[in-house]
Design a protein around this nucleic acid. Structure first.
Lengths: 355, 355
DNA sequence: CTGTTAGCGCTTTCAG
DNA sequence: CTGAAAGCGCTAACAG
């Protein structure tokens, strides 16, 4: 029924071993023989059996990409970039790597489950993108799983995620400098003259959330603004998921708590969009009455009205590099960790406070 | 080195077959035995070898999802929804399906390559999302590949894509009603009084592009607006990719060709965003000087300023249903094809023309 | 309910 | 450069 490698061998009048060799192209085969085999493959419309070859070779050509939310362009852009670097040269049958993106939805269980599934498939590499959960138990579980995967020969790459505590060396990490990005953004606001700044943070217990918030508070502290009343800082911070709705609701809450706010910093651009919507609904003009800033510089941010001041993360470049790291096309950075800089993008949504 | 099923069997003092049975849970096993096996699995930290079991069982638990652009939320939302419906109940080891999203980047070659890769992996199902390329040769190649996959037992689901010409029956199709969505949108503009309407279309040769454009022209024709000079219609249409930049550039071009335009319809929301940016740069106010409309109703559209009039496609619902179809959890629609309705969302970006 | 027995289709030494 | 043979780790009849 289904055509196998031996069928091809028979038709090409060679042994199965030879067919395997031309297909994998990693062994010398006479040009004439190769031609004959290739023709047989075409004639028979043969497709290699992936599971069988993975079993025999004890490796697969799957590369797993774990993302928190596939519907969020933040992850989509990285995943796309990883994928674009992963595709092999397109050699006949072998060599083709397949990137599989797995959507954890931010759930720790699913993250672990996918890791197990990838382990089960004997994945060639696994790329973990975006912020990690800070729960120690979960972090330990992930580390353990990753160590196991690495033992089995799977390459591990972290992209946009802080390095593992217990770094097993086999892991390459590309981490975003969320902290100084956050700091620079708030410094910008401070320089403009803002003193009452609300912060719509991401979900608790996420490294991304914490680092960005820390950067914000670092800037405040350095300027002496936050130091007076620190409970004040808590008051001006609201946590929520990385969604526009969260930005919307949190902003309303912030306005309730502190009607004298002159600026709002959002955990990311999507949240900033929701925040802006809430402000407009309250009749506040941006940036005349209140400034707004985001983080990430997703494609739509430049088209917001007014264009959003934000912190640009080179998502595409980082993803591409992660892809190369995953395939071994690029050497890991010294020490296994590279920090990717964040760039402040000042646009129309921030201005000096009016009062 | 690596622990196998027989190791587990030995430790649990049962035969490998029994271990396999408890792991797959699809065969009666005494409760006591099962416990013993499960404990052995835990003790040994055993992970099933996916390739081996796929080989032996001649099926895999992989579900492929093909998307044109993973960085575009249009696809991200559908892919996420498919995935959310696919995950198994999370039984111990077996039963877990793994959704893999494959980014074709709109390239026909990559689409075919991924299909081959999925075939090689003996995927349980393949979901193709979004508009298809209209090139007959490519369409035939895809159909052929799909037929082959179906023969091998892979379920095929089309989501947001028109049914296959040569429908092999084994395929379930969820198609968006792009045509009447486009028609209704333009009717809305016509009703407002617009007569000179520019159209920023998607890339040529895509079903989505064509259907939306046809809907637009249908509306025009029905109202008698387009019938006078049909070359005129061509004049007022510019094609380009589904990107904001395309929307930006095409709009500038449209304005050059016809400065008297009172409305611009974009192929999708992303394009509409770019169009809006171009209009604003030209000093035109939306909707006072010119109306703008999009398509898809992506999450950011409601936050545009003014909020974007568009056509809502139930992306999440469609994806979820596609996921259920892919796992066989839902019966295919009668005739194998279901048409998903599109809903007009009238918002602030459209208004009667001022002149 | 459980063990035995054959492979699934491919890769890979090891000889020629 | 090519062939023969021995599995990779698991599942699936088939008996008990």
């Amino acid at each position: 029924m289904t055509v196998t490698l031996s069928d091809v061998a028979a038709r090409a009048q060679v042994s199965p071993a030879t067919v395997s060799r031309v297909l994998n192209g990693n062994y010398p085969v006479a040009a004439a023989t190769r031609e004959r085999v290739l023709r047989a493959v075409d004639d028979l419309d043969y497709v290699l059996n992936g599971p069988a070859s993975s079993l025999a070779a004890a490796t697969s050509d799957l590369v797993g990409i774990l993302v928190n939310d596939i519907a969020d362009p933040f992850f989509g852009i990285m995943a796309g970039a990883v994928q674009s670097e992963i595709g092999g040269p397109g050699g006949r049958a072998g060599g083709e790597r397949m990137a599989v993106v797995c959507n954890t939805g931010g759930s720790p269980e699913r993250e672990l489950t996918y890791l197990t599934l990838l382990q089960r498939q004997r994945a060639a590499a696994v790329v973990l993108t975006g912020g990690a959960l800070e729960d120690p138990a979960h972090a330990a579980a992930v580390s353990a799983k990753l160590a196991r995967l690495a033992d089995a020969g799977t390459r591990i790459v972290l992209c946009g995620r802080p390095p593992l505590e217990d770094s097993d060396a086999a892991t390459a990490t590309l981490t975003f400098d969320n902290r100084s990005g956050g700091r620079r953004l708030t410094e910008h606001l401070l320089t403009l003259g803002h003193r009452r700044i609300g912060y719509v943070a991401g979900p608790m217990e996420r490294t991304t959330t914490r680092h960005r918030l820390e950067g914000h508070r670092d800037a405040l502290a350095a300027s002496g603004t936050g130091s007076a009343g620190n409970g004040d800082q808590e008051e001006l911070t609201v946590h929520g998921p990385y969604t526009r709705q969260s930005g919307y609701e949190a902003t309303l809450e912030l306005l309730r708590r502190a009607p004298d706010l002159t600026a709002i910093v959002a955990a990311n651009d999507t949240v900033a969009l929701g925040a802006s919507a809430a402000l407009r609904e309250r009749g506040l003009r941006i940036p005349d009455d209140i400034s707004v800033a985001g983080f990430d510089d997703l494609p739509f941010s430049v088209d917001a009205v007014p264009a959003l001041t934000t912190v640009r993360l080179p998502l595409h470049e980082a993803g591409a590099r992660a892809g190369r790291l995953a395939t071994g096309a690029e050497a890991p950075p010294p020490g296994g960790v590279a920090t990717i800089g964040a760039e402040l993008m000042v646009r129309g949504s921030t201005a000096p406070p009016c009062r």
